[in-house]
Nucleic acid binder design. Structure first.
Length: 95
DNA sequence: ACCTTGACCTTGG
DNA sequence: CCCAAGGCCAAGG
């Protein structure tokens, strides 16, 4: 869980990573519950980490604060498509 | 100890 | 592209 936060903090502005990717990078050892636990961890820590740089595999931001998230991402210069989904091909940080 | 919930993912219609 | 089903597992009641 500690590792998860590190990874998220390491995401550069304007880039994003999916929950699944984070779980993969961290490894099954620490991200035991897969993507779900990543989300849970972020919820616990609150605004201490740039959680808005973590999006779903579909490219849409997290469900509860999608407005805020997309806004912040736009400010950071993250590429979008259709005006809402993140352009994964460019913004996705390689695992 | 059991049950429910949930910032999700993948696969198959 | 949209929907449903199954899997995953930590936390909280």
């Amino acid at each position: 869980m500690e590792a998860v936060l590190d990874v998220v903090e390491a995401i550069p502005a304007g880039r994003v990573m999916t929950y699944g990717d984070v779980a993969t990078v961290v490894g099954r050892r620490l991200a035991r519950g897969g993507p779900r636990q990543v989300g849970t961890a972020l919820r616990e820590v609150g605004a201490a980490v740039p959680w808005w740089r973590v999006v779903r595999s579909s490219g849409l931001p997290a469900v509860h604060k999608e407005e805020t998230a997309s806004a912040l991402l736009r400010v950071e210069g993250c590429p979008f498509v259709d005006g809402e989904r993140v352009d994964m091909r460019r913004a996705r940080l390689a695992p």
